[in-house]
Amino acid sequence: MKLSKPQPRRDTEDYILPLVNIVFLLLIFFLLAGTFKAPDPLEIEPPQSRSEKQAETQGPLTVLLDAQGRLAIDGERLEGEALQQRLAERLAAEEGGVVRLKADAAVDAGRILEVMERLRSAGAQEITLLTALRTG
């Protein structure tokens, strides 16, 4: 009778090394492909567009507007007078009066216009609406 030869017991290392390789690859991918920044004080789901124009992620004044219509600036939630004052201060220091508006896709047009009006009265001349690249 022919019996198969018992397989020599392999070291656990032999199984784990490919796993480690893959994990290292993933790690390097996330390191290189991802970008890091401080989280925004408001949760915003940006509208999707096919606009070709790339936005700078760093740079001038960015005003956040979330789905509930709350506003934030410089990573700080502000309302009413305090906001208006901060906007005026920041716009006075800024050349060209460009404000970037990062608004949620679900925000009502009426609210956007309200915010634009406030920005205009604080001295803004142009607004750059931030959108996310549409995928698919």
Partner: peptide, 11 residues
Amino acid sequence: STFVQWRSIDL
């Protein structure tokens, strides 16, 4: 890390 690619529209 975030992977959102930001685009802009000037108004």
